[in-house]
Design a protein around this nucleic acid. Structure first.
Lengths: 343, 343
DNA sequence: GGCAAAATCCAAAGCGCTTTGAGAATGCCA
DNA sequence: TGGCATTCTCAAAGCGCTTTGGATTTTGCC
């Protein structure tokens, strides 16, 4: 069933039917009703390709999946996508995914533009210095950054968590509990989010007059085994920390695993705090209770995905161009993995 | 830059240029070279929408993301997608994602067909009785099932792991170690994969003359807190198991967490085995070693995604229609979480 | 009742590509 | 050198939609 068939069936022109379906004012309410009803019962869907060709607009948002050498798929990334896809679906948009090596990413964006495949893209994992912003701007491809670059100047749309503030709060929380040797198991510090977290951690320590011990800080991809490795290394030190701050709940789980192997209980023998992206597969489902119950700074990455989708669509449709940047505050959640320093 | 511009620039007709680009034999090698070079230097990309309109074919594969009430995004799902998107990218295909409530899934497929959005779909999470196969067949939309339905009759393409065999092997492995009280923390048994795993477990116990204790088996979504809950419940029983078999490494991690809280060490005080989908974010990255080192049945879900993509593309392009079903065997990996039953 | 204005509706062009059916150029042989 | 079979190239139609500019009908008002 296409427009032509539908319109002859209705005894109307294609113009009128198209206008009726797209909500143009030139068509009477009565006719519109009749058209909508016919379209519904005939199960008519306009062809997105034809519409794209005619209008130059496409209701598709592109995301590039980085395929690193380790084939590491960031679960944070997939939860973000899940949220975003809900946002898209609600607005009648679709999500297009393309796998690419990091060095191919620029070529993918160029391909998106010259083939007119997508109406906009979401940039993932921004770095302090990120050439993608300049590229996308020069390509004229609408975009939204999940996170920020280092030199974020309000000149492009982004959605981010206030990572510096979050880690300053977390570190201060541990300091207030009496801890002075606080380890940081951070993400890759070339990434803006991790650099900001580091800055928050540093600031809190300095404001309290504590010294930064380089032996207590780690920086790597936030996977479970990394949390395990880093914690094992910490426990082997001559003067181990009394509190550990993790950048992701995945690291935190690896951390707890290492502690358990060494007979240490988080919240009793040592304090553990983490940033919690509310990853879906770590949440209790159904009527089960009990999560790891970490003391954490919490901000749902899935919600961020949903909101990002909405903002980007607004940008593409020119509804509100004043979205330059949105910053969310993380929430402090007190769990059972922290306690005042003993003796 | 479009075809028309490119062809006038070359002093050729659109036909010739199109044929040169698409590898038709009617054009001389010399001309083809010239055309390809010009296309490259002009950074020309044909419009997928226009090509779609002209040919009726679209190089896009659809995936439906189920958005359950718990907003649970299966990390197994996302690792599969990561693999699949690599397979698509290699063949010049793209992946289209659409979020939908489970009950909307059928409507999404109908929409895909009537709007001609995709050239095929991958069906995720097949159940023993699954109406989607019949629907897709009647819609004439090419598809591949990741997994199988219960009544798999070789009449549709699928890629699956031999789950029954895998869990029979795993259970037998534990039995050989002397265990007789073996718990199963399984996935949702309405799903085929979980039902098959259950069947393998049952078969192994029966073949060894062991009795099935319903108190030792659990069935739910495979998230970490579920593994924790189930294990906690098991440890509270009057006659707790001496071995636990988990359906996912996520459950296994929850299981180990519960054990640790109760002062039990896997591989020492109790044996733990799991199915390992080789989830990327649990793998050590870089030069770190050490994973949880579970004794496990292993099969990479990311590889499955990649292969699924290849098969589905073959089906769509009519290259090989004899792909009715592909069954992979899981590999037994001996880790440090199992040991012979003591006393 | 008559006329302008408003409300409806329509034919046709065009988006960028593929592909059919036919024409021009080339090579080969007698 | 002429005639025929190949080889290469082309103009034009069509895919399903939107949108311009114009035609037709209805309405409002004196």
């Amino acid at each position: 069933m296409n427009l032509k068939e539908l319109s002859t069936q209705l005894g109307l022109s294609q113009t009128t039917v198209s206008r009726a379906l797209n909500g143009f004012p030139e068509v009477s309410e009565k006719t519109r009703e009749r058209v909508l009803e016919a379209a519904r019962s005939a199960n008519y869907r306009p062809s997105p390709s034809a519409a794209h060709l005619a209008t130059g607009k496409t209701r598709v948002i592109g995301h590039v999946i980085p395929t690193t050498q380790h084939r590491m798929i960031n679960p944070h990334f997939s939860d973000f996508l899940a949220g975003a896809s809900e946002g898209y679906a609600a607005a009648g948009y679709d999500m297009l995914l393309r796998a690419a090596e990091p060095e191919e990413e620029a070529a993918v964006y160029e391909d998106f533009v010259s083939s007119k495949r997508v109406g906009g893209v979401v940039v993932h994992g921004p770095r302090l210095q990120d050439s993608r912003i300049g590229l996308l701007r020069s390509l004229g491809l609408p975009f939204l950054v999940h996170g920020r670059t280092g030199a974020e100047d309000g000149s492009y749309p982004w959605l981010d968590v206030n990572n510096k503030e979050a880690f300053e709060i977390a570190t201060n929380y541990l300091i207030k509990l009496g801890h002075t040797r606080i380890a940081l198991i951070n993400g890759l510090e070339e990434m803006t989010f991790a650099a900001q977290r580091r800055a928050g951690y540093d600031a809190a320590l300095q404001n309290s007059g504590l010294t930064l011990d380089p032996e207590l800080t780690f920086s790597a991809d936030m996977v479970e085994p990394y949390g395990y490795e880093a914690t094992s290394a910490l426990l082997n030190q001559s003067n181990p920390p009394t509190a550990i701050l993790c950048a992701s709940i995945l690291c935190a789980m690896g951390c707890v695993r290492a502690l358990a192997e060494n007979g240490m209980r988080p919240g009793k023998d040592i304090s553990v705090m983490t940033f919690d992206d509310v990853l879906s597969f770590l949440q209790p489902s159904g009527n089960q209770r009990s999560s790891p119950a970490f003391t954490s700074m919490r901000s749902s990455i899935q919600d961020a995905g949903r909101r990002s989708a909405e903002i980007l669509i607004d940008v593409i449709e020119g509804k509100s161009s004043d979205h330059t940047g949105v910053c969310w505050e993380a929430e402090l959640v007190e769990g059972r993995t922290t306690s005042p320093l003993r003796d």
